[in-house]
Structures are given as C-alpha cells and as structure tokens.
Design a binder for these strands. Structure first.
Length: 337
DNA sequence: CGTTGAACCTGTTTGC
DNA sequence: TGCAAACAGGTTCAAC
C-alpha cells in the first residue's frame, strides 16, 4: 500500500506529533496481538501463530533490547521520508554523540499511527512506542500495525556526519523521483535495456515508486509498460519524467491512495484511488479513448494499461523473432501485446 | 545485465 | 454453498 505519496502523508501527519517528544518506552504490543483476530472464522485455513513474538521478530531488524537500550530517553528531532522509508532521527539530550535514526518501512500493510491511548485497537499491532511531552502535544503513543508483516523496523547508528541517513542509503537506493532533474533521469535511462515498468519499480533506480504509480504514470505518458528503457526517445522520456512528478504530486495532495489498508499517521485514508485511471481497472473503458483496460504480468506484477493509448513499440509487436540486442534471452511469453 | 518464480505473511475476492 | 486458487500497495534471492 505504501508508495511514495502514502509514506509522505504518513510523515507529514506524524511530524507535528512527534518532533520534540522523548521516547519513554518501547514495548511489544500485547493484548489483541496474541489473540487470533477472529477465532470463529470458519475458512481460516491457517489458524496461524499470530504470536506477537514471532511477528515482531520478523519485523524488527534490530532486536527489541537494543532498541530499548539505545532509544529510551532519546528525543525525536525530525521525521523524514526517504523513498518509502520513514526515518525518525533521535538524539539523547544528555549524550552528545548518541545519535540514531529509526527506519520504518511499511511493507504492504504497515501502519504507523499516533494514538492517545496505549492500548492497540488492532490485533495486528506489534509495537508500541510511548512518547513523553513534546513542545506541542501531550506525548501519546506510536503504534506500529502490520497485517502481512512485510514491514521492517531498524535502528541505524549515525556516527558523526549529519546526513548519515543519506550516506547509509546511498548506493542502495536511487534518487528521489521528485528531486531528480530531467537531464539526470535521461542519463540514467539511456544505458538500461530493462522494460520500463521493471526499471521504475526498482528502488535502486529511483526510490519511491511502486505498482500503482508506475502504472498510472505510464498511462498518462502513453508509454507501453514493456517498452525498453533505452529505446524511449527523448519525447517519451520527457513525458514520462513529467507525468511521474505530476502523478506523485497529485497523489500526495489527495492524501495518497487507500485501497484497503492505507491510512496516514492520524488514521485518515487518502482519496487518490478515485483518480486511478488504469490501476485495478481491468476491463473498464479507458478514460481517454474508451478501449478496454488490460492487465498483463510484468516482473510478476499485475500491470494495467490501455492497449490503444499505450502502443507497443514495433520491436515488441512483431512476434517471436525479435530479440533484445546483445542478449540471449527471448522475449518473455508473459507479455501479451 | 535482466527475467521469472518463489518466499516471506494474512486477508479478501473470484471461479468452478 | 463451499472450497481452492488467485490476488493484494513490497523486497529479496536463486536460477537461468
């Protein structure tokens, strides 16, 4: 659920609550988490564990003990987004050198919500961070909830350098699509022979895009998702660049897309899903030309596009004889054009 | 390089 | 009706 616009909204909604607060305690959510969500559900094929212990261990990339040791008593200095990661910069007021960043990745179904009460409302809440009186609020609690448990929480030690966060991630994640210039974008695109959809999903290439916004941006730019990146001409590359930014900015302004799980740091859903033109609209008429929206698989991800507006490049269209230059791999069968 | 499919999870929807 | 398969916003890894 959480791509760049959703994470940006989480960060913005949490910031006023968190900045200035002291972390009073960190604890595994007990309560509903240990209990099956719905004990009497008949079809529950796996009455699975749901033991907070197992789930929390999966999510925590830093052991709870270490989290407690290092963060208890620390002050939250800033709340930032880095790609799809949320970074809480923390510092001990009394210890000059002790500076950390708590990295939270929401995975598919993660939620990070500020609550006034300690008790989780969801059986899928795994971690509770107790906050002590910030300048602008009364503390409260930060709840991490995650149904599918694909999220990650990790403590990053910042040794000295202020921009430690970025140094840490550099090389691991590409530029932010809202910060990169067109010239740089085009330079990165040029040597790549991957299909554009795969490339845009790759966080090493650009950080922050996910399945929804890649499909929506490609639709707006009228580019077929299976197009080879290096073969987009300048006009298409420009269109793509422009529409990625536009789509993301509109989505941020709309509060993100809420399909089923996403809410911001105050529990509010977004509304951008109402503006999706192709994502999960298979079979519906294209809002631009009326053709049926199609769904194919690219990079094993559901990919939605208009077969008329987003025409396949010739090379891809004319059948099995085509091969990518300098490559031994045939055109994957999954691409139906 | 680039691709696929599986794996990590739970829950909901679809299809026979 | 009922049950199984498919699918879901993400990332990583092995194998080709």
């Amino acid at each position: 659920m959480p791509e760049l616009p959703e994470v940006e909204n989480v960060v913005r909604s949490l910031r006023p609550h968190l900045v200035g607060c002291i972390i009073a305690s960190i604890s595994a959510a007990r309560n509903p988490a240990g209990i099956p969500a719905r004990p009497d559900t008949r079809s529950t094929t796996r009455s699975a564990t749901r033991s907070t212990g197992a789930a929390l261990t999966r999510i925590l990339r830093t052991p709870l003990r270490r989290l407690r040791n290092q963060l208890t008593g620390a002050r939250i200095e800033s709340v930032e987004r880095y790609g799809k990661n949320i970074l809480l910069a923390c510092r001990h007021p009394d210890r000059r050198e002790a500076t950390f960043s708590l990295r939270v990745h929401l995975g598919m179904t993660g939620r990070l919500i500020w609550e006034s009460a300690a008790e989780p409302r969801s059986p899928h809440t795994h971690l509770v961070i107790e906050l002590q009186d910030g300048a602008l609020n009364d503390g409260g609690f930060l709840h991490y909830t995650d149904i599918r448990q694909f999220g990650e929480i990790e403590l990053i030690h910042l040794s000295g350098e202020s921009a430690g966060d970025k140094l840490f991630f550099n090389g691991r994640l590409g530029p932010d699509p809202l910060e990169i210039t067109f010239v740089e974008f085009a330079r990165l695109l040029r040597p790549r022979r991957a299909r554009i959809k795969s490339l845009l999903l790759d966080q090493h290439f650009l950080r922050g895009l996910g399945n929804i916004y890649v499909d929506e941006s490609l639709f707006r730019a009228r580019i077929h998702p299976a197009s080879i990146a290096a073969q987009l001409g300048r006009p298409r590359a420009e269109r793509l660049y422009r529409h990625i930014r536009q789509t993301l900015e509109e989505a941020i302004a709309a509060g993100g897309s809420s399909i089923s799980d996403y809410v911001d740091g105050q529990g509010r859903p977004g509304s951008f899903q109402q503006s999706h033109q192709v994502y999960q609209r298979t079979g519906e008429p294209c809002p631009r030309c009326g053709a049926r929206i199609r769904r194919i698989l690219i990079a094993s991800r559901g990919t939605h596009f208009c077969p008329r507006c987003q025409r396949a490049p010739r090379r891809l269209r004319s059948g099995q004889s085509w091969r990518p230059a300098l490559s031994s791999s045939p055109l994957p069968k999954a691409v139906h054009l």
